[in-house]
Amino acid sequence: MMQDTPLAPVISARNLNLIFQTNDGPVHALKDVSLDIAKGEFVSFIGPSGCGKTTFLRVIADLEQPTSGDISVNGLTPDAARRARAYGYVFQAAGLYPWRTIAGNVKLPLEIMGFSKAEQAARVEKVLELVELSGFARKFPWQLSGGMQQRASIARALAFDADILLMDEPFGALDEIVRDRLNEQLLALWARTQKTIGFVTHSIPEAVYLSTKIVVMSPRPGRITDIIDSPLPRERPLEIRDSPEFIDIAHRVREGLRAGHLDD
């Protein structure tokens, strides 16, 4: 299925290992993880808790340092890539500041990065429009629903226009209906912005629906058990979830997850 452009991968990991020293002894969070992510791909990481999917995303973001192995982001070390504002990161919780309006929250990274006032205003308007929150710029976070807050946090991650968007179970705390809607919106946003997206989830339908590439991981030690390149077209209505192709991929993901558990 590999019909990628011949470009160098945006994110490239080789034999990545990460061992946490805890009071209960060392924990092998990542073991020999190797993965290439090409520009414009939508890559999902799926697996049970403790499989290292979030840890891997955090290594890409330079929030954790690998014990051994190589990783490059946009051809740089994660540290240099972070400083070069290579990525926007969306956390599990929206984490909006209650003392800032929605516009103020989206503006936060822009203030920190030293954009001019005019540039800040223009970018805030643009990304709020992108996540369909234009009318809510002056509202405070508590005036918005959970789904809208998470959209605002996506807008904040997009505000400085990084090429890569890293998302750590962004819709995990939301109900199924809101989640479906946000998934649709996320695909539309991805199509419009051409970002490379790394997306952590533990929902099989979500992973299959969104991704061009699904990375199945399993715990103890955290490792990759399967990498599935999705044959689904980029244009995906919600109904695609009833198609035989979709069900086939979902089945393969489920098999991969089960295999990971068998050799426990």
Binding site: L63, R83, Y89, F91, P109
Partner: peptide
Amino acid sequence: HMQLDQMKTYSASGPQVFFKLRLP
């Protein structure tokens, strides 16, 4: 931790973390 990590993803300086996050 999440809010502090988030500041790190913006490569925020110490004073920025203080005045924009900790103090408020």
